[in-house]
Simulated scan of single mutants.
Amino acid sequence: MSKVIVLTGAGGVLCSTLAKALAKEGHKIAVLDLRKDAADAVANDINKEGGKAIGVAANVLKKDSLEEAKNEINNTLGTVDILVNGAGGNHPLGTTSNPHFLKEDLLNKDEGFKTFFDLDSEGIEFVFNLNFIGTLLPTQVFAKDMVGKKGCSILNISSMNAFTPLTKIPAYSGAKAAVSNFTQWLAVHFSKEGIRVNALAPGFFLTDQNRTLLTNNDGKLTARGTTIINQTPMGRFGEPEDLIGTTLWLCSEGASFVTGVVVPIDGGFSAFSGV
């Protein structure tokens, strides 16, 4: 049965892949992104392949923007059945320069060098808001359409950081831990209305945001990229297509009794002790 599916952050690499995969299942897709041109590009690709999609500009941190997007979606595609909260990201102001603190770091005057003590509160707030509030607000707006209907669900995007925090990125790790916790909370809260809530926890995927951190210009791995691959039993980064199978399952009636789970898609990273 065709459903109306909203995806936030869907102008990006990962969620655009999910949007196209869901469209191939016959669903009507609302591609939401802060950048209207990026949203339209994904929607156009779907429509060229015979699917049904619209691109909609929306800021996941502004409720009025989301309400405007909802009105456009309702008028064009109908009421919402499934929400994929894909908007998120990190910020350099919430990132330390080194994985471990050493007392001599306090003497480092290099431009841009940041210890834990130099982390910018506004940068940390931005990261937390984008990932957590940017999940909460769309859920408040779009889940109202799901009340009283059958087969509705919400899919959040958590991260490996939520299980074990990575070095250097405390803001992002904490924000994704909040997303995982919120997923479980929402699953219980909405359970009596039959709205399922689950999350994906991707491992390491090359995206526009992290590509320069994990690979050099020549395509070879950076030191951090090498560490990650060595800690990933399958020995590679994830491809966007690796997220499709779990997404289709959690959004389908085949997962009708599955709620409150956070599924690692990480090539075995979370299972490996490092020894």
Score class of each variant (00 low, 15 high):
residue 263 V to S: 13
residue 105 D to Y: 03
residue 241 E to P: 05
residue 151 G to D: 00
residue 179 V to N: 11
residue 7 L to A: 05
residue 136 L to G: 03
residue 157 I to Q: 01
residue 248 L to N: 08
residue 130 L to M: 09
residue 228 I to A: 05
residue 88 G to C: 14
residue 257 F to Y: 15
residue 56 V to I: 15
residue 274 G to V: 02
residue 209 Q to A: 15
residue 142 F to E: 04
residue 101 F to K: 05
residue 23 A to S: 12
residue 40 D to A: 12
residue 133 I to D: 10
residue 39 A to H: 07
residue 191 S to I: 13
residue 174 G to Q: 00
residue 155 L to A: 10
residue 140 Q to W: 07
residue 183 T to M: 01
residue 49 E to M: 13
residue 221 L to Y: 05
residue 108 N to H: 06
residue 183 T to R: 04
residue 216 N to Q: 08
residue 24 K to M: 09
residue 210 N to T: 10
residue 80 V to P: 01
residue 29 I to S: 03
residue 179 V to D: 12
residue 121 S to P: 12
residue 119 L to S: 00
residue 72 E to M: 08
residue 11 G to D: 04
residue 188 V to E: 09
residue 118 D to F: 04
residue 224 R to Y: 10
residue 3 K to V: 00
residue 268 G to K: 12
residue 59 N to R: 12
residue 70 K to A: 15
residue 108 N to E: 11
residue 163 F to H: 11
residue 17 T to L: 12
residue 118 D to E: 10
residue 217 N to A: 15
residue 248 L to A: 11
residue 270 S to N: 11
residue 212 T to F: 09
residue 58 A to Y: 05
residue 211 R to Y: 14
residue 170 P to Y: 13
residue 191 S to C: 10
residue 47 N to G: 06
residue 61 L to E: 11
residue 37 D to I: 11
residue 107 L to V: 11
residue 11 G to W: 05
residue 74 N to L: 04
residue 148 G to M: 04
residue 214 L to Q: 03
residue 6 V to H: 02
residue 47 N to Y: 13
residue 182 F to L: 14
residue 86 G to C: 06
residue 12 G to H: 01
residue 138 P to Q: 10
residue 5 I to T: 01
residue 18 L to W: 03
residue 165 P to T: 02
residue 261 V to C: 13
residue 258 V to Y: 00
residue 229 I to L: 12
residue 22 L to R: 03
residue 243 L to I: 09
residue 195 I to W: 03
residue 206 L to D: 10
residue 204 F to D: 02
residue 269 F to V: 00
residue 5 I to V: 15
residue 93 L to T: 09
residue 28 K to I: 01
residue 142 F to P: 02
residue 114 K to Q: 13
residue 228 I to Y: 04
residue 208 D to H: 08
residue 192 K to D: 06
residue 12 G to L: 03
residue 142 F to H: 01
residue 23 A to T: 02
residue 102 L to C: 12
residue 242 D to V: 09
residue 165 P to W: 01
residue 73 I to K: 06
residue 150 K to Y: 10
residue 7 L to D: 05
residue 174 G to T: 05
residue 10 A to Y: 04
residue 210 N to E: 01
residue 36 K to C: 08
residue 251 C to K: 00
residue 191 S to R: 08
residue 46 I to C: 07
residue 243 L to M: 15
residue 95 T to C: 10
residue 79 T to A: 13
residue 37 D to V: 13
residue 52 K to E: 15
residue 219 G to A: 09
residue 221 L to N: 02
residue 87 A to G: 10
residue 71 N to L: 12
residue 246 T to P: 07
residue 234 M to G: 01
residue 101 F to Q: 07
residue 215 T to L: 15
